[in-house]
Amino acid sequence: MIKNTKKLQKKNILSLEDVSISYGTFEAVKNVFLNFKAGDITSLIGPSGCGKSTVLRALNRMNDLIPNCSLKGTVLFDGTNIYDKRVDPVEVRRRIGMVFQQPNPFPKSIYENIAFGARINGFTGDMDQLVESSLRKAAVWSECKDKLNDSGYSLSGGQQQRLCIARTIAIEPEIILMDEPCSALDPISTLKIEETMHELKKNYTIIIVTHNMQQALRVSDMTAFFNAIEYEDGDGGKVGYLAEFNSTKKIFNSPKEKTTQEYISGKFG
């Protein structure tokens, strides 16, 4: 009972209201309604081309960097539509950080990789301490502590990805977006990153795109299943839509939609 009231108290931190995203005239995903709860890990799953990465990038306006990409509808964060003309995308990205598919450390030292983001965000405290705590939170401190001045490239792929997570944590965002963060990593690194995510959950809201359904099952509280259907006019193009959104348990144990059932049991996708 107590657990239940606690769940009810979780507030929506980010809401998509009737969001459609297009690249030029090609509609990638349409009519998405979705509420992300603060403190949850939400995973977005679905077959390739269903627009889940597109939706993820829309959440901190990374899609702005892709020419021709346009969005209809509203994305409410902290009570503000982040697609309002008055909104500064740089500020949005400071509060909603992102970790990418390929580890992409800066060509700088490990220390600088962490310090860069904090410094440009006006951090004035103890930088050494911030670097250490960020690396600790991302579970990569023990591997890095003796070579903070080495290049970020000197780390292995999995370590680089955790460095990138540490870099994102260092700017103290409210939400961390992860776009298939483990797709370029081996199972052991993947496991470490998943452990990291469980740690991070205490302080951050995490939204993750993954192709690995076991991963979604392992890490997330909520799961959104995206699917793609062919256009009604039937010219072969596909448009993505949100097929089902529920707690991870329900999605994997008793999905309401037939397509969800088929996807998670590996019948297509």
Partner: peptide, 22 residues
């Protein structure tokens, strides 16, 4: 590579900082 730009912009760097520092 664009990934480097995204990395910088993704942690809230402005265009100007990204270009100058990265």
């Amino acid at each position: 590579p664009n990934e480097l730009r995204y990395a910088s912009l993704g942690i809230g760097a402005s265009m100007y900082t990204t270009i100058l520092k990265i």
